[in-house]
Amino acid sequence: TGYYDVLGVKPDASDNELKKAYRKMALKFHPDKNPDGAEQFKQISQAYEVLSDEKKRQIYDQ
């Protein structure tokens, strides 16, 4: 599964769309709200870390 799929956004998503999707998913799977969501929360955080950084995103998109 790709990072875009993890966040539920298209590859041409804007920074604002990425942030909005990340916040929505992070709230849904945060371990405090969803004890079984810890692994998914890590994936969401990693996806956002890469896609929100312009240089990392360019490398990922290659």
Rank of each mutant, 00 (worst) to 15 (best):
G8H: 06
Q40V: 10
A26D: 02
L27H: 09
M25W: 08
K19P: 01
S45E: 13
A47R: 00
L18S: 02
K28I: 09
E39P: 06
Y3T: 02
A47C: 04
D12L: 04
S45K: 14
R23F: 14
I44E: 01
Y22Q: 03
S14T: 14
F41V: 02
L27S: 11
D32N: 13
L18T: 02
S14E: 05
L18N: 01
D53M: 02
P11G: 03
Q58R: 14
S52V: 09
D53P: 00
N34H: 09
A21S: 02
Q62L: 12
K24C: 15
L7W: 01
K24G: 10
K24R: 11
F41E: 03
A13I: 06
R23N: 14
Q43N: 08
Y48H: 01
P11I: 07
K55I: 12
F41G: 00
K56W: 07
E17H: 03
K42Q: 06
V50F: 08
A21M: 00
Q58K: 13
Q43A: 13
S45D: 04
E49H: 12
K56C: 12
Y60C: 04
K24Y: 10
S14K: 06
P11D: 04
T1P: 14
G8T: 02
E17N: 03
E39G: 04
M25E: 06
I44M: 03
D36A: 11
K28S: 06
V50M: 05
G8M: 04
E39C: 08
F29K: 00
Q58W: 10
N16V: 11
D5Y: 08
A21N: 01
D32L: 12
D12M: 02
D12K: 01
A26I: 14
V6H: 04
Q43K: 14
K20Y: 08
A13W: 01
A26Y: 14
V50H: 06
L51R: 00
Y60A: 03
P11A: 10
K28Y: 11
V50N: 04
L7P: 00
K55P: 03
F29C: 08
L51Q: 04
Y22D: 04
Q46V: 14
Y60S: 01
F29A: 02
I59C: 11
Y4D: 04
K19R: 13
G8C: 12
D36K: 10
Y48D: 01
K19L: 14
D32H: 06
P31L: 07
K28F: 07
Q43R: 14
A13T: 07
L27R: 11
D32Y: 08
L51E: 02
Q62C: 11
L7G: 01
Q40E: 10
A47W: 04
H30M: 05
K19C: 13
E54I: 14
K56N: 07
P35E: 05
D53E: 04
K55C: 12
A13M: 01
H30D: 11
V6M: 12
D36W: 12
A47Q: 03
R57P: 03
Y3N: 05
Q62H: 09
D53A: 06
Q46F: 11
P11H: 06
K19T: 11
P35W: 04
F41D: 02
A47D: 03
A38C: 11
Y60V: 06
G2H: 14
L7M: 06
K24H: 11
I59D: 08
R23V: 14
K19G: 06
I59W: 13
Y3V: 02
V6C: 08
D36Y: 07
T1F: 15
Y60N: 05
D61E: 05
N16P: 06
A13F: 06
Q40N: 06
D36R: 08
Q46R: 11
Q46W: 10
D61S: 03
I44N: 01
P35T: 04
E54N: 12
K20R: 13
T1A: 10
R23Q: 15
F29I: 03
K24I: 13
L51W: 00
P35C: 09
E17A: 07
Q43W: 12
G2E: 10
N16G: 12
E49C: 14
N34R: 06
K56P: 03
H30L: 07
D32P: 09
K19Q: 14
F29D: 01
G8I: 01
S45I: 14
Y22E: 02
D61H: 05
Y60M: 04
E49K: 13
A26N: 06
F41H: 05
Q40L: 14
L51N: 00
E49S: 11
L18M: 04
K33N: 13
K55Q: 11
M25D: 02
H30P: 02
H30T: 06
I44V: 10
P31A: 08
A47S: 04
N34T: 08
A38H: 12
V9K: 01
Q40T: 08
S45M: 13
I44F: 02
A13Y: 01
Y48Q: 01
D32K: 11
E54P: 15
A47I: 06
S52T: 08
L7V: 02
Y3L: 12
Y60E: 02
Q62K: 13
R23Y: 14
Y22H: 03
Y48N: 00
Q62F: 10
S52Y: 04
K10M: 09
D5T: 10
D36S: 11
D12P: 02
E49R: 12
S45P: 01
L7A: 00
L51T: 03
E39S: 07
M25T: 02
D61K: 04
Y22W: 07
V9G: 08
R23K: 14
Q43T: 09
L27D: 14
K10S: 12
A38L: 11
Q40R: 13
D61F: 05
A38F: 09
N16K: 14
A26M: 13
L51C: 03
R57V: 04
A38T: 08
A21G: 04
K33A: 08
Q46K: 13
Q62T: 08
E39H: 08
I44A: 04
F41P: 00
Y48K: 00
D36C: 11
Q46P: 02
V6T: 08
F29G: 01
E54L: 13
K24A: 12
D36L: 10
P11N: 05
K28H: 09
K20V: 12
Q58H: 11
A38K: 08
Y4N: 04
Q46I: 15
M25V: 05
V9I: 09
E39D: 13
R23D: 15
A26R: 09
D36I: 07
H30V: 01
E54R: 15
V9P: 00
V9W: 01
T1D: 10
D5W: 13
R23M: 15
I59Q: 13
D12S: 11
R23E: 15
I44H: 05
A21F: 04
Y22K: 02
G2A: 13
Y22R: 03
G37E: 06
S52A: 09
S45G: 04
K33E: 06
K42P: 07
L27K: 13
D15T: 14
A47K: 02
D5P: 04
V6Q: 06
A13G: 01
Y3D: 00
G37P: 01
D12R: 00
T1S: 08
E49T: 10
G8N: 06
A21T: 02
V6W: 07
Q40Y: 13
Y4R: 05
R23I: 15
G37F: 15
T1R: 14
D5H: 11
D32M: 10
A47E: 00
Y4S: 01
S52M: 12
K42L: 14
G2Y: 15
L18D: 01
G2C: 15
G8E: 05
K20G: 07
N34V: 06
S45A: 12
A26C: 15
Y4C: 06
A38V: 08
I44Y: 01
K10Y: 07
S52F: 05
D5K: 11
N16M: 15
Q40S: 06
V6N: 01
Q43E: 13
F29V: 03
V9H: 02
Y22P: 00
I59M: 13
P11K: 10
Y4M: 00
K33W: 11
D53G: 04
E17M: 06
P31E: 01
Y3W: 10
K10L: 11
R57H: 04
P31V: 05
R57S: 04
K20F: 08
Q40P: 06
I59S: 11
H30C: 13
I59R: 10
P35Q: 07
Q40C: 15
A13C: 14
H30G: 07
K24L: 13
D61M: 04
K56M: 07
Q43F: 12
G8W: 03
S45R: 15
S52R: 12
E54D: 11
Q58P: 06
L18V: 14
A38Q: 11
K55Y: 12
K20A: 15
T1K: 13
D61G: 07
D61L: 03
K55H: 12
R23T: 13
K24V: 10
S14D: 12
E54T: 14
I44T: 02
M25P: 04
D15N: 13
D36E: 12
E54C: 13
Y3S: 01
V9R: 00
